[in-house]
Design a protein around this nucleic acid. Structure first.
Lengths: 124, 124, 124, 124
DNA sequence: GTGGTCTAGACCACA
DNA sequence: GTGGTCTAGACCACC
């Protein structure tokens, strides 16, 4: 599979898993209805504990990214993109504004930041 | 004093303390040579354990923000401002880039965000 | 394990621990990637508090000797020896020069010292 | 007077005082029978607490460097130079050996250090 | 009064 | 099981 777990990444393992699966879903690499590897398979492939994968899948299900049916496996869910996008945009706007206010104390302006961030390969 | 500990903030208490003291130093509210409140005073004022403050002060000393002399107290160190600003800018760039990556998963572009943030009264 | 805590040693316990682990890493007894005993194991073995070991491990991590991952344990880091050696040499040269200048006031020359230090079993 | 107390020096203040007085005696700057400043004067001049000077003078008396006579003041004692020099040499040897041990951790030999120190203007 | 060290014991997140 | 955080309370050296 396409997932990589790094011990240097400060994020906990389960989060590294969920983040990468979310990326795959959002980018279309994993399409709705697609069956995910079983917990056991995924654990074996990534050489990490089944418990960790279980936790990751549970989180994904709670957040509506996947659906798990006993005995059948886990499948990518069909997501309400508009609602998700709106929520996310509000959340992000809040985060960014907080950071910019903090930055202002160091005499770093929003433009300073936007400029250095642009042209770094971030999708515009 | 000027420090506020919030139970809603997911950061551990000691980090809330260090972050706010760093900000105060960086913004000039706390000038070099200034004596910080003693561990005991600060603990009493914030109503948290002495040990948590001690941990915060120890971290600040390790990072070069303050100097601590047993029997005397802790004092704001003389800091290399350019280096500090540079570090902060790197840190912020990292934070923002992380958020933008998360945003991209929802088809929210950097420009979408910059646009909604601009004209919100944030210093540019 | 190989660590010994001596009550006669004026160094605090946590420093005795870090010094001995640094020695073991530097001498190759502990190789990169090696897992260190857990905080609890080490504490039990040395019959000192968990917290003292935690302090020692935290210091080692701050100085780059080990990496600690919550839930997994602590591991010997891969160290940039050349850089470390260079820094250390500069630092030592400074220390020694300071001592020699102090000694000169007592009419003790550098050669006097070098001579008495040599042949004492110190690695040359 | 010739004493300087530095807050950057990790040695406690009372030790900075005793060390510098010992140096002055050993180097002949302070000759036997010379009267030292009173505790009160010294404290005022160095801008530190009388308690600290009291502690320093007490230590010096215990180690035989000075004699205090109530109502008269403190005077430099008549010292056995050979013994003093021998003590100093032992102390320095101890310091140097400690540094060399630390150095050995980084594969830096005594010769490496002696070589870089020599020819730096240190009296040999 | 100050900070430095060590202790015991709790609760939490993570694997 | 692992480490991370927070707590209360002890003793010490220093000012």
């Amino acid at each position: 599979m396409f997932i990589v777990i790094s011990p240097l990444n400060p994020d906990p393992m389960y989060k590294q898993v969920t983040d990468q699966i979310k990326d795959a879903i959002a980018s279309g690499t994993l399409r709705p209805e697609t069956k995910l590897p079983s917990i056991r398979e995924m654990a074996k492939e990534l050489k990490i504990s089944m418990i960790t994968i279980k936790r990751a899948y549970a989180d994904l299900e709670n957040e509506g990214y996947i659906l798990t049916r006993s005995g059948l496996g886990s499948f990518v869910a069909d997501i309400n993109w508009d609602k998700l996008r709106e929520e996310k945009l509000t959340e992000i706007r809040f985060e960014i504004t907080k950071i910019l206010h903090a930055a202002a104390r160091f005499d770093i302006s929003a433009e300073d930041i936007f400029t250095t961030v642009r042209g770094k390969g971030v999708k515009e």
